[in-house]
């Protein structure tokens, strides 16, 4: 039963419930559970199915009291990973493309205009294709942007992991 209260306390802390309120709820819960145990009443009889899921119980209690923001809706919770996955995928593809262009040393094509016009008569300006093996700054810019985007994606994933910790089996 102490373990149940401790898990609730951790959940309240994670949710940002103030210490005095969390302490008050934990003390009330612990007193009730102790009294029930002394009278031969199990935690399951007192708490129902909540006895097997302390984090949900703690979150539900705090939310109903109005001391934490409402939990995000399942729709929003699903949308964010989809957006994050798409963002991460695009950043990864950009990184691979930029790296590939730089590593393969493929000739880079640039378009330049040359030509002269003398006395109004002469060759018209024409487009000439120059080839060069020097890396174009565009590839470097793409590479840097892709690395930054991937770093940002990694930060978003870690922030999400902190706010949605995996539930331990059996809880």
């Amino acid at each position: 039963m102490t373990d149940f209260v401790e898990q609730c306390r951790r959940e309240w802390k994670r949710l940002g419930v103030s210490d005095p309120l969390a302490e008050e709820m934990a003390a009330d819960l612990a007193s009730d559970l102790s009294e029930a145990e002394a009278e031969g009443v199990s935690a399951e009889e007192l708490l129902g199915m909540s006895a097997f899921d302390p984090p949900s119980f703690a979150a539900s209690w705090a939310a109903e009291r109005g001391i934490i923001p409402e939990q995000p809706s399942p729709t929003n919770a699903r949308r964010r990973p989809l957006f994050l996955m798409a963002f991460t995928g695009v950043a990864a593809i950009a990184l691979v493309v930029a790296a590939g262009l730089l590593l393969t040393g493929e000739p880079k094509l640039t378009l330049a205009t040359s030509g002269t016009r003398a006395g109004g008569i002469g060759p018209l300006p024409r487009s000439v294709v120059h080839s060069t093996s020097a890396p174009d700054p565009v590839e470097w810019i793409l590479l840097v942007l892709a690395v930054i985007a991937l770093g940002f994606a990694a930060w978003l994933w870690s922030a999400r992991a902190r706010s949605h910790p995996p539930t331990a089996p059996g809880q």
Binding site: D28, L29, S31, D32, E35, A36, E44, E45, L46, L47, G48, M49, S50, F57, S60, W61, A63, E64
Partner: peptide, 25 residues
């Protein structure tokens, strides 16, 4: 207090109050 309410409900036959929990309510 919380547990006392549960006992009062159980004395009147509402033992299945334990399916949920009174605390959020």
């Amino acid at each position: 207090y919380g547990y006392e309410m549960t006992k009062r409900l159980r004395e009147r036959g509402l033992s299945f109050v334990g399916e949920g929990s009174i605390y959020p309510l």
